[in-house]
Simulated assay, not measured.
Amino acid sequence: MSLAISPALRDALEGWLAHLRALDGAAENTAEAYRTDVVGFLGFLGRHQGGSGGLASLRGLTPSDLRAWMAHERGRGIASRSLARELSAVKSFLRWLSDREGFDATAVLSARAPAFQRKLPRPLAEDAARAVIGQVEAQAHDDWQGARDAAVVTLLYGCGLRISEALALTGAAHPLPDTLRVTGKGGKERLVPVLPAARAAVARYVALCPAPPAPQGPLFLGARGGPLGRRQVAKVMEQARLALGLPASATPHALRHSFATHLLSAGGDLRAIQELLGHASLSTTQAYTAVDTARLMEVYARAHPRA
């Protein structure tokens, strides 16, 4: 860190990040994002208070200081959603530090995040999701790559996997079991039921693959034998989207949204869907309830147009 932060404060920041990784299971990318947010806040605080940037500056932190920082971020063009994320990181650090150093940060921790409109997930219709599976296979240069792309897409839509989770599978996962153990964000494991269609899609890919995946190597291979990458999957999905006339929101992650939304529409339990998706908070899963309601209202509006 190039900012003028005291050694004690630097050590505290590293201690907090270590705590997040070890006890809260934060992924490395998440920890680094938090580091950036907090370092930015500390840098502003040093300039704002004109101090040395030590622990004393945080002991005497006031709600007014926090409001000044948020106003500064707004002035830089930071959107409400991003500012809310930054504030969450700063408050998490202050909460941990106040517990460790024994000072009262209640007044600062009560600061409210800026209000923002949460973006609803944008799932595909059921027929569109099925069409994508067929399209990615049909558009491939050869049979084995088509089978591979269809298998990846089937895992995203049929099992609700994140693209990173699907690509992290090794050859040892084949043949897919009835229940797949998946490692998600923060290294958290969950069990996901495997549909027969997903098992069959992966089996077909492996049978056609010119170099069957090694047990300890990646399950999904690229054209040159290396691991299949996220960008390759995104490109395949983009080609399918254009061929089918689907909106730009039809991304690989949209298939995971589709899995959750269609499961909810079919009467799935919200808690069960939370477990299947690996969401840490039920509030994240509840976004699909809003999607389901929004789609219902669209159908209602078409069926009952205003005079």
Rank of each mutant, 00 (worst) to 15 (best):
S283D: 15
V132N: 00
A105W: 07
L180N: 03
W69F: 14
E165F: 02
A287I: 15
P218L: 05
V152T: 11
R162V: 07
G46N: 03
L17Q: 05
E165G: 00
V182N: 05
G278A: 07
D99E: 15
L94V: 11
S80R: 15
Q232I: 02
D292E: 12
P196Y: 02
F44E: 01
T62K: 15
I163H: 00
Y288I: 07
Q139A: 10
D143F: 13
S110K: 14
G267I: 00
A280R: 14
G102M: 10
E101C: 08
P63G: 01
I163Q: 00
L195Q: 13
L42S: 01
G229P: 05
A12E: 12
R81F: 07
E137R: 13
L195S: 14
W69T: 08
V108C: 09
R100E: 13
E28R: 08
R302K: 13
V136W: 06
E28T: 13
G222W: 10
A203F: 08
L167C: 12
A107V: 01
F103A: 03
R306W: 01
G102P: 10
I5S: 02
E298Y: 01
A207N: 04
L61S: 03
G226S: 14
E189L: 11
A303V: 05
E126F: 07
Y300L: 15
F220H: 07
V206G: 09
T293Q: 15
D104L: 05
P247I: 01
A223I: 15
T285E: 02
R199E: 13
G226P: 04
A107Y: 09
R181V: 15
R118F: 05
V38S: 03
A26P: 12
L23C: 13
L23G: 14
V152W: 04
T154C: 06
L3W: 10
L167Q: 14
L55I: 11
E137K: 11
L161Q: 08
P193N: 00
S88A: 13
E101F: 02
G40L: 03
A243V: 06
W96K: 05
T289F: 08
P175S: 04
V152C: 03
T261R: 06
L270N: 09
V192G: 08
P215I: 01
A207Q: 14
E101P: 12
A201I: 01
L45R: 05
G25I: 07
L277F: 06
I163M: 08
G77E: 09
L242G: 02
M237G: 04
S6A: 13
L161R: 05
D292S: 08
L120R: 04
L242R: 15
H72D: 11
L180C: 03
L17A: 03
S164Y: 06
E86F: 11
V108N: 11
P63R: 03
H174V: 09
R190P: 12
S57Y: 01
R112I: 08
